[in-house]
Design a protein around this nucleic acid. Structure first.
Length: 496
DNA sequence: ATGTGC
């Protein structure tokens, strides 16, 4: 059972640590972090969660933690776990998170920082008005009823664009080209549907934001150019998810699996790890509902992006081109080579060495897919470039830098990397440390325009409550998870 | 994250 003390870490390389399998762990734990990040790597609970995930039926290679790992519901945030579907591998809602398909969308404007500066306050005012946010209701698109919601759930951003809320490029550059096709709107609870009807096109709260950013430094010229980014360019980044709908779906299926688990002979060290085989009725039902929430989240970001685009065009004359849209809370059925999780196994597999290709259920919770160059699922215009992988969008905490990375060959964690800075202080600790008004003054004095939803919400997101995003990205690069393409700094933030 | 919470 769960050991009382924190699991011991053994350093394997400067950016890779191992938790030896003990007790019911089926595979080792692997933590990617720099020595500098490690002492505060989420505390004992996050590492214990890495070890607990390693006990899940069908898990292969290792239970992975990204450099931004911290404590979460059941699984750590910043966790990656893959299960072998044909070998009784499970799916767990806790491995996806409550905010199903929470993710990031980045647009680039045909506008440089100097030309934007005189318009900054007006644009931020415009974005503040066009971006419903905060707890509860208010949305860009109030749906007519369950029939229209079903279309959103089935077709995601594709439906939004079909209805005039966007352009073809928005789909070409979106993960899964705007929609996953195995969603089942009919399987959702009435509560999930009701919560979804009036929140489409809304940011939410917590760490969700819409930011105007400027490309501060380009680290990889070829990839930046292919993506459509240049130094000094103005960008818009949107970070949000599936709102109350995804939350309700997670709640519904955790409950169902808690009941169903015993029937499959599954016991877990923490009830928050409730899971069932992928190949089971409740497993398939969860994945289809999760897919519906993924489509809702994409449509959500599509609508918020379109509203921002209209503000930009009206006030600056510049359009917004989508760079990419990627989720960091999702499970996906993918084929990878499985090698047993020893050291360089993942890299060797990807290079065509040892390891059998298996159909896996890859859980990424607070972790971002990072496909290597040449992968068939890349956008068509990026697919045939030799050293350019999938765009990876890493939002920093409020007032700090964000990053664009690219997927690399031979990634050691099923083509995954970090998702952001990762919390170090609780919301409560942060709110006690600073007042929202004070924080806004500080950010404004550093040239960052702030449009908040609540003073408390602002305080909870103080930069000091998060890890250093530069160090997290450095560790991700050092561990061979991804490569930096561009660093972006905020000039204006609309907070949920 | 979330009509913050058994």
């Amino acid at each position: 059972m769960t050991p009382a003390s924190a699991p011991a870490l053994v350093q394997e390389t400067p950016y890779r640590y191992r938790i030896e399998p003990t007790g019911r762990m089926r595979v080792p734990g692997v933590v990617f972090a720099s020595p500098g990040l490690l002492p505060e790597v989420g505390g004992d609970q996050a590492l214990q969660q890495v070890a607990d995930v390693a006990t899940l039926p069908g898990i292969v290679d290792a239970s992975y933690a990204m450099p931004d790992v911290h404590w979460g519901y059941g699984f750590p945030i910043g966790g990656v776990a893959a299960t072998d579907i044909a070998d009784g591998g499970v799916v767990s809602p806790g491995g996806v998170g409550f905010d199903i398909s929470c993710g990031v969308r980045l647009y680039a404007a045909d506008l440089d920082a100097a030309a934007f500066a005189p318009r900054k306050e007006a644009v931020l005012d415009g974005l503040s008005r066009s971006t419903p946010r905060g707890m509860g209701k208010g949305a860009v698109w109030d749906l007519s009823g369950a029939d229209q919601l079903a279309k959103v759930l089935a077709s995601g951003a594709k439906y939004a664009v079909e209805q005039g809320h966007g352009v073809q490029r928005d789909l070409d550059r979106c993960e899964d080209f705007g929609a996953v096709d195995d969603a089942d709107p009919a399987g959702l609870s009435e509560r999930a549907v009701n919560r979804g009807l009036h929140q489409l096109g809304s940011l939410g709260s917590g760490n969700h934001f819409l930011e105007v950013q400027v490309v501060d430094a380009v680290r990889d010229q070829a990839a930046a150019e292919a993506y459509g980014l240049r130094a000094g360019q103005v960008c818009v980044m949107i970070h949000c998810g599936s709102r109350g709908l995804g939350h309700q779906i997670c709640t519904d299926h955790v409950r169902a699996m808690e009941q169903a688990m015993a029937g499959f002979g599954i016991t877990v060290p923490d009830r928050q790890l409730a899971c069932v085989p992928v190949e089971s009725d409740p497993g398939r039902a969860y994945l289809r509902a999760m897919a519906a929430a993924a489509n809702y989240a994409r449509a959500n970001r599509q609508l918020l992006g379109q509203a921002a685009r209209e503000v930009f065009e009206r006030l600056t004359g510049a359009g917004l081109d989508l760079i990419y849209d990627i989720s960091h809370n999702l499970a996906k059925v993918e084929t990878h080579r499985v090698t047993g999780g020893d050291g360089a196994a993942g890299a060797a597999g990807a290079a065509g060495g040892a390891g059998q290709p298996r159909r896996l259920c890859v859980h990424r919770k607070g972790a971002t897919r990072a496909l290597p160059p040449g992968h068939p699922d890349l956008p068509a215009d990026l697919r045939d470039l030799p050293d350019v992988g999938q765009p990876v969008l890493i939002p920093g905490s409020m007032g700090t830098a964000s990053y664009v990375l690219t997927g690399v060959p031979g990634g050691p964690a099923f083509a995954s990397t970090c998702h952001g800075a990762g919390r170090t202080l609780s919301r409560h600790q942060a709110a006690r440390a600073v007042r929202g008004q004070e924080l806004r003054r500080l950010l404004e004095s550093r040239g960052i325009a702030v449009r908040g939803a609540s003073w408390r919400g602002l305080a909870e997101e103080m930069p000091e409550a998060y890890k250093d995003i530069d160090a997290v990205v450095e560790a991700a690069e050092g561990a061979g998870l991804a490569r930096a393409v561009a660093r972006l700094v905020p000039v204006g933030v609309v907070k949920g």
